[in-house]
């Protein structure tokens, strides 16, 4: 029982981090139909900016820099690169984002080295004992920060101003006809996804140790989480990611820690075969 509770905590923590990436996917996918592969690499970039570069600057400043850069990278890459490729074919833009992820990975590898870098948590090393369950300050912070961000996003989308975004999710062309500035909204959503990715990187680094190669792994796992729940809505994408985190923790705790990556993708393939719309997603008809 104690082990079970401990695994639930671990699963919630990793699931929240996957959820941050998955939210980015869901927001961009519903708004533009684009799957941004580079989100994982952006998370990695955020982690490096917060923990490795500019060691002389106080950490909170570096975290702010990391968040700002996350938003800027996201917005610039859409407006300068993906948008033009997406006009021709969405798949070209997806390949482009994959290539851009490799570019980020290589830039970081060349400038900071390809080895794992330890990242001390900004929340200190305090460990809380709740009954039989131990939870570190960092783990607690991960859950709290993600919960705040998720609720913030949901509240924003539910508000009156958020109605414009929802209108765009439902039908971008009609929204544009009704006078909603979809281009500006898309830019804002890209900024949001960039910030979420940077937060994911900052939160994940002390748990996983930083390396240039963590990016694509995060990108893939976040995507699996989003697919598991359903990419079409933000809530289902988050729920799917947390579910995936729990599944992974249980598998690692009870079956085999070595083969957890294989499990994640086995789940992925199964979902795609059995229920491509996601466990919680609604099956939508393709418009012809």
């Amino acid at each position: 029982m104690d082990k079970l509770l401990q695994l639930v905590v671990a699963g919630l923590v990793t699931g929240s981090i996957y959820g941050l990436i998955a939210t980015g996917y869901a927001v961009l996918y519903t708004a533009t139909g684009f799957v941004n592969f580079a989100l994982g690499a952006q998370a990695m970039l955020g982690g490096y900016l917060a923990y490795v570069y500019f060691p002389a600057v106080p950490q909170w400043v570096r975290i702010v820099i990391s968040l700002v850069v996350g938003a800027v990278v996201s917005v610039v890459s859409w407006n300068l690169l993906y948008k033009w490729a997406a006009r021709r074919a969405m798949l070209a833009a997806v390949i482009m984002s994959f290539a851009l992820a490799i570019v980020f990975e290589e830039i970081i590898r060349l400038s900071a080295g390809g080895l794992n870098v330890p990242a001390p948590s900004p929340f200190g090393r305090t460990v809380f004992q709740l009954g039989a369950v131990t939870i570190s300050a960092h783990q607690l912070a991960v859950v709290v920060v993600s919960a705040v961000l998720f609720t913030g996003l949901v509240v924003m989308l539910g508000s009156k101003r958020g109605a414009a975004v929802r209108a765009m999710f439902a039908d971008a062309e009609t929204a544009e006809v009704l006078g909603i500035r979809t281009a500006r909204l898309t830019t804002i959503l890209f900024a949001v996804s960039g910030v979420f990715a940077a937060v994911a990187g900052i939160l994940a680094a002390p748990l996983l140790t930083l390396s240039p190669y963590m990016g694509l792994n995060l990108a893939l796992i976040g995507f699996v989480g989003a697919i598991l729940g359903g990419l079409g809505r933000i809530g289902t994408a988050i729920a799917g990611s947390i579910l995936l985190g729990l599944l992974e923790a249980f598998f690692a705790g009870y079956v085999s820690a070595d083969f957890r990556t294989a499990l994640v993708y086995a789940v992925f393939v199964l979902v795609l075969v059995i229920r491509p719309a996601g466990l919680l997603g609604r099956v939508a008809k393709v418009k012809v």
């Binding site: 139909g33 798949l91 999710f169 079409g232």
Partner: peptide, 17 residues
């Protein structure tokens, strides 16, 4: 159309169209 999909619209997925 029998293929279910989560795609809200069907974006043009051809790479070099």
């Amino acid at each position: 159309m029998s293929t279910p999909s989560t795609t809200p619209a069907s974006p043009d997925t051809r790479l070099d169209a």
